[in-house]
Design a protein around this nucleic acid. Structure first.
Lengths: 194, 194
DNA sequence: CGCCAGTCTAGAGTGTCGTTCTAATTCTCG
DNA sequence: CGAGAATTAGAACGACACTCTAGACTGGCG
């Protein structure tokens, strides 16, 4: 049994979701900075005005898409951890999931957009921060048993190291693609989890 | 004795420089994303059309300003190294110079802008990459004597760790300001240079 | 000296967006 | 059903980067 509020809220969520999926698809083939609100609207089969009726402005679409993208990646992360044979294998998988697939990686491109113009309200910034924290906690759990006294500190350092590597991949300089980042990360993990 | 070409070239450089200084000043009080070409032009005492006669587009102003800003920071870096009493003190100084002063740090804000829309041509991207490499080399030289076989690898990891920390400071989440980043960096250095 | 070619400069013009407004349609509930 | 609220499309608006145009300046050469 659903009340009116529940029903309309459900519909709203569905429309929002349709927009976000359209946005994600658009970002994948053009890069977030080249995608216009109109592009997203067309893909979602609605007018640009309507898109902005649901998301107050373009930036909110970016942030919401990032949130969606992180959410689905988090699921893959948790599944990978569960399936991994041992901690080392899990860490390897997580590293590969976390690092960008290349200079055009949508998730990282969205992070770059957000960092270029961070949200005004602290609440949203803190919420984005939480996304990073979740990875740190997950990695800390894997590091804890075998490692230095404070696995959390090491995990935090490792995550930030990967952030730095990701940014460099995003820049797209020659010789600094995903493969390079994976190698650097492996070296970093070895040094930090000692 | 200067030929006509030398003279005009010198004048060109002077005008470009005036624009870049105006841009830097503007970025400092509004953040690069909020500064319009017109703002820069006003500060430099010229028309916006004229600014774009020297820099083909807005992005080139951002990149050139970043280059200028990195250049002056590199000088401070080299001076700090020369003046430091020992390697540990030098590393501490370098870390403080490298990390952002806060969420509004102009240099890092410019990096964020560039990463959000990386230059089309590989040459420019490689040139930006070189800026990072210079820091790595500088740190490697300080790490080399006292450290693991490969100081360069450790230096690279440390730089990327700081990049990641910087990005998080830029995001501006609560509790993740400069002081936090400096602490994390210190912990990271201890772990990496072991 | 006086013209010519090239460069510099301001400012108006143009096109592309994000965003807001308006008016119409559809839904919800009494 | 009918009032009012929510939804929708599309036109209108404003801001901005970038381009164009026309005039001013400069330095060389007859």
């Amino acid at each position: 049994m659903t009340t009116r509020d529940d029903a309309t809220r459900g519909a709203k969520v569905a429309v929002r979701d349709r927009v976000l999926r359209a946005a994600l698809a658009a970002f994948e083939d053009k890069g977030p900075d080249r995608v216009r609100v109109q592009d997203i609207a067309s893909r979602a089969g609605m007018s640009s005005g309507h898109v902005l009726y649901y998301f107050r402005d373009r930036d909110r679409i970016l942030i919401s898409t990032l949130l969606l993208s992180e959410e689905s990646l988090a699921e893959r992360r948790d599944r990978a951890v569960r399936r991994a044979s041992d901690a080392a294998a899990a860490l390897d998988q997580l590293t590969r999931l976390y690092l960008p697939t290349g200079p055009r990686d949508v998730r990282w491109a969205l992070w770059a957009q957000v960092l270029a113009r961070p949200p005004e309200d602290i609440a949203t910034r803190d919420r984005l921060q939480e996304l990073a924290n979740a990875w740190t906690l997950c990695i800390a759990a894997l590091l804890q048993p075998a490692s230095p006294p404070d696995g959390l500190a090491a995990a935090s350092l490792y995550c930030h190291l990967m952030d730095g590597l990701a940014m460099e991949v995003l820049l797209g300089a020659s010789g600094h693609g995903r493969a390079w980042a994976v190698r650097e990360a492996a070296a970093g993990l070895a040094a930090l989890a000692r």
